[in-house]
Each structure stands twice: as structure tokens, then as C-alpha cells.
């Protein structure tokens, strides 16, 4: 069992690095705010960031063994399809997650 002192140090190190990564870029970007290049990057970035985050959350899906990621694929299709159709954020998330949990817990495992 990890010691409390070690755990506190690990939490402190993680928090300090995370905060640094979130806060320091603003100090560097401040003078660049009016630059059209920075505006172009800032406006184009969200789609790319979301794609990378989605891929990151799916990195451990086992494709080589049955059910070959099928529950995740069907859940993705549910969320994407519903969101293109109804544009209701909560509905898209809840329905996709429900499909995923039911398939993975009960049917396709």
C-alpha cells in the first residue's frame, strides 16, 4: 500500500505540471493575440483537438480479439447518427453510452 506522503507528493507533482501546461502558454501567447496566424490556428484547432481526444479515449479498444471493437463501433454510430439528426448533446451522449454498456456488459463479451 502506498504511503500517504508518497501519494501527496505524486498528487503535488501531477497538479504542478498540469497547471504549468495550462497556464504558461498564455504568458507566451499574450503578445501574439492580434496575430492573424494565431487567430487562424485558434479557430481551426477545436476539430483537430476533439479528433485526437476521441482517438485517445479509444486507444485501448481491443480490435484483434472478439468482438473486435463492435460494441464501440455501434456506440459511436449511435452517438454520431443521433447528433447529426437531433443535435441534442445530452441525448447523443446518454444513448451512445447506454448502447456501449449494454453491449459490453451483457451481450457481446
Amino acid at each position: 500500500m502506498p504511503e500517504p506522503g508518497y501519494l501527496l507528493a505524486a498528487v503535488a507533482v501531477s497538479a504542478a505540471i498540469t497547471w504549468g501546461l495550462r497556464a504558461l502558454p498564455f504568458a507566451l501567447l499574450g503578445p501574439l493575440r492580434r496575430s492573424p496566424l494565431v487567430a487562424h490556428l485558434g479557430a481551426g484547432m477545436p476539430v483537430g483537438v476533439m479528433a485526437v481526444l476521441v482517438a485517445h479515449t479509444l486507444r485501448d479498444v481491443p480490435l484483434a480479439v472478439p468482438p473486435h471493437g463492435l460494441p464501440t463501433a455501434l456506440a459511436l454510430a449511435t452517438t454520431v447518427g443521433l447528433h447529426l439528426w437531433r443535435r441534442d448533446i445530452v441525448l447523443s451522449i446518454v444513448a451512445g453510452t447506454a448502447v456501449h454498456v449494454v453491449l459490453l456488459s451483457a451481450i457481446l463479451r
Binding site: 481551426g44 454520431v80 448533446i89 451512445g96 456501449h100
Partner: peptide, 22 residues
Amino acid sequence: VGLDFAVTALFVVLGIDAFRAR
């Protein structure tokens, strides 16, 4: 199992909305 898909779904949905903006 599989509750963690909610985060994937969140980023998918926000990605689609970010796409719709432009």
C-alpha cells in the same frame, strides 16, 4: 463495464459541434 464511453461520446459530440461552426 463500458461507462467510460461517455467521455468518448462527449468529445465526438463537441467535435461535431466544432465542425458545424465552420
